[in-house]
């Protein structure tokens, strides 16, 4: 875009030095961004006993899948992974569908409650009840220790509404009108016409909703920490971290978790690295392909929000 071309002028020495420094800086940035992740990946694929010797950087020294086998052998972690997947899928679908529906209604100028609904949502940007009142509300609604506490309280975000609504308003008028002429009702129009046409906006929302669901741990801790059945992958990792954090150094701990039943010993370092990779891999594999969408979504949200 920013095509400040040099024309016939040859780049000066200063320019060339600037470019070289700039590229070097970017390489430095890429290194410190990627190194910690790749280091964990290497540790998770390296023999657990060998890792204790240290010196693993970017490449496993004694390659093995054992750490992954061990981690998924643990009933709690296996179950937690299922819950994580379940909340991500259900939460994302419901959030996208409901947000799109509300966004559609407030995108229609003739809707009599348009201002009321919009204002009700936008006002919530400026206050919130806070931790304790929310906790007590969830308790009073009997949502403690239930799966739905992951889905219902965060169902619709104002940011989602703004992104989808601006997108719908940007659609050519004729498309929605022609659906009406065919005698389609509002709900049919929404399902058959609006949803397919807003796919780019919905992709943005899906990504954010899925990332939110997959990464959440605080709601597990706050609302469901007493029911092991509802624990998620992220929360299991939190427990491992808390174990190692309460010990004096970062390394020596988490033994409570990595039980050393001699035959199948897996060191805490390896377990932690493996969990870290499992907890982040799904998102790492998806986000680069949605880059176009979230960059656009951020720009819309940033300008209008």
């Amino acid at each position: 875009m920013a095509s400040h071309r040099k024309g016939a002028l040859r780049p000066s020495t200063g320019d060339r030095i600037f470019d070289i420094c700039n590229v070097l800086f970017m390489l430095f940035l890429v290194t410190i961004t990627l190194y910690p992740m790749l280091n964990q990946l290497a540790l998770s694929l390296n023999d657990a006993n060998d890792s204790i010797r240290g010196g693993i950087h970017l490449w496993p020294r004694e390659f093995t899948w054992n750490n992954y086998a061990y981690v998924f052998d643990q009933a709690t972690i296996y179950h937690a992974t299922l819950i994580s997947i379940l909340r991500t899928v259900i939460g994302t679908c419901l959030t996208v569908f409901c947000s799109a529906m509300v966004a559609y209604t407030i995108s229609k100028p003739e809707f009599v409650l348009r201002k009321f609904v919009t204002l009700a949502f936008v006002l919530t940007l400026y206050f919130n009840g806070g931790l304790i009142p929310t906790f007590l509300l969830i308790r009073d609604l009997n949502l403690l220790n239930s799966f739905w506490v992951y889905i219902v309280p965060g169902l619709i975000g104002v940011f989602n509404l703004i992104v989808i609504r601006s997108f719908i308003q940007g659609l050519p008028d004729g498309i929605l009108e022609s659906a009406k002429i065919d005698g389609a009702g509002e709900f049919t129009t929404f399902i058959r016409i609006v949803l397919p046409l807003t796919v780019p906006a919905l992709a943005t929302i899906s990504l954010f909703a899925a990332v939110y669901q997959w990464n959440s741990w605080f709601d597990v801790f706050l609302f469901n920490s007493s029911s092991v059945d509802l624990s998620t992958l992220q929360y299991e990792l939190v427990k491992i971290l808390q174990n190692s954090n309460s010990a004096s150094s970062g390394k020596s701990a988490a033994d409570a978790f990595a039980n050393s039943d001699s035959s199948n010993f897996v060191s805490p370092i390896a377990v932690r690295a493996t969990m870290t990779i499992v907890a982040s891999l799904p998102i790492m594999m998806v986000y680069p392909f949605l880059q176009k969408y979230f960059v656009k979504g951020m720009t819309v949200g940033g300008v209008k929000g």
Binding site: Q40, R272, A279
Partner: peptide, 11 residues
């Protein structure tokens, strides 16, 4: 997630 980030940072 911050959990993953915290784990990486602690390492």
């Amino acid at each position: 997630s911050w959990v993953v980030a915290a784990s990486i940072i602690m390492v």
